[in-house]
Nucleic acid binder design. Structure first.
Lengths: 129, 129, 129, 129
DNA sequence: GTGGTCTAGACCACA
DNA sequence: GTGGTCTAGACCACC
């Protein structure tokens, strides 16, 4: 999942995890029926307390994107991908637009941002060149 | 200055004020030596408690952008504009990176983001194709 | 730690707390990695408002002597002891200078002060005569 | 008078001025009947607002050390020297002792303090060697 | 008028 | 339990 949590961010860690998981579901990285990482595993990876992951999973379930099956783990629901896409696709694009606008207004050169984007896209970026 | 505070944002009001003032300094709206709005005045304008403005001003002073003068007001330091610009550059670039990461993770194609960036850059962004 | 706060002192309570904690760190009573007393606990002990302790802890963190860990407490940083010792040295020397200046200005003979200093230094202060 | 005011000190500027003037009277630098510096002059020298000097002079008069003669200036009263000595001699010596003790406990070498004292004593220090 | 500090009490999120 | 933030209202000292 590669979810990193920034403890200095004003957005609470649990919500950062929710957004991260929703992104993974929206992109298809996690499909309907797939099992989410274990609470302990994600907690170790994100360097947060397991309770925080538990809360994030509870929020995801409340959104209808996942469903915990007693004792066997947490799974993406059938409607999960749709929910995630509805919640995140438009939101992340809008956030990207405003972030780009802010960065440009602050004086960043478009080329710098383009290169930053390229790096973030990783290998996918190279292919599209 | 026109500082509005969104109480529903996860970003604490005091930090919103800090960002707002830094913007004003970075943009030249407040030059070195200029006096900031009074604590009570800005509090009334932003609809927050004066203590919240006090905290924001303390943070600004700690950043080196402003300096309080005993009973007379808070002023932009000589190095203030430079500090504000540097902070804004770093801040907006970091925000752009995370926004790009989230959008990519949510499944947006790099090309879509690149085109979005192009549009945001307006005429400055010449087509590199 | 035994931090007592004198509400009649011109030194603000929060700064008295800062000085008290720095003393504890500089003396080794609190080592790097140790946890500071809880905000509420120290507030009860020092008979001040928890917010006052919070402010003191924020100042300490800003000085680099401590670091707050989200929900778990405030801890002495690795460089904390060094920072605390450096601050105490500078602080006490400045206080000594001003006290000396005031005493001299009030009419005390330098010899009187020198002898007073000798006594305070105890056996360590060998007579240079 | 050579009164310097530290605006960063927690002790209010007006009280710093009171202490400074009392010290001058206690030492005999200002004798009974002598005129104090003008409000404006002392304000300019100490880099404070004239109102602050006015308040300090009011406090001094309230202590009985000085007396303002309408329009002609402020003068040391007959009992002024006695008042100043009663208030400041013991106090400054005690403050010197505690400052010395603190500095020594913080780790300063007695020799460093002795040299600092020498410097503060200026030419007087050389004579007493 | 100005900022600075404290108290008191509340809410939030993490451990 | 932990710290972090905000609100509300008060006092102080300087300009």
């Amino acid at each position: 999942m590669n979810c990193r949590v920034d403890p200095h961010s004003p957005v609470p860690p649990s919500q950062q995890l929710v957004a991260c998981v929703l992104d993974a579901i929206a992109s298809g990285e996690l499909a309907a029926g797939d099992r989410l990482p274990s609470v302990r595993g994600l907690a170790a990876e994100a360097l947060v307390n397991p309770n925080t992951v538990t809360k994030a999973y509870r929020d995801l379930e409340h959104l209808g994107a996942t469903k915990g099956q007693n004792g066997s783990g947490v799974y993406v629901t059938d409607g999960g991908p749709e929910v995630a896409r509805a919640l995140r696709l438009a939101e992340t694009l809008a956030a990207f637009e405003t972030a780009a606008a802010h960065a440009l207004r602050a004086g960043h050169e478009p080329d710098v941002l383009r290169r930053t984007l390229q790096v973030a896209a990783g290998t996918k970026g190279k292919v599209t060149t």
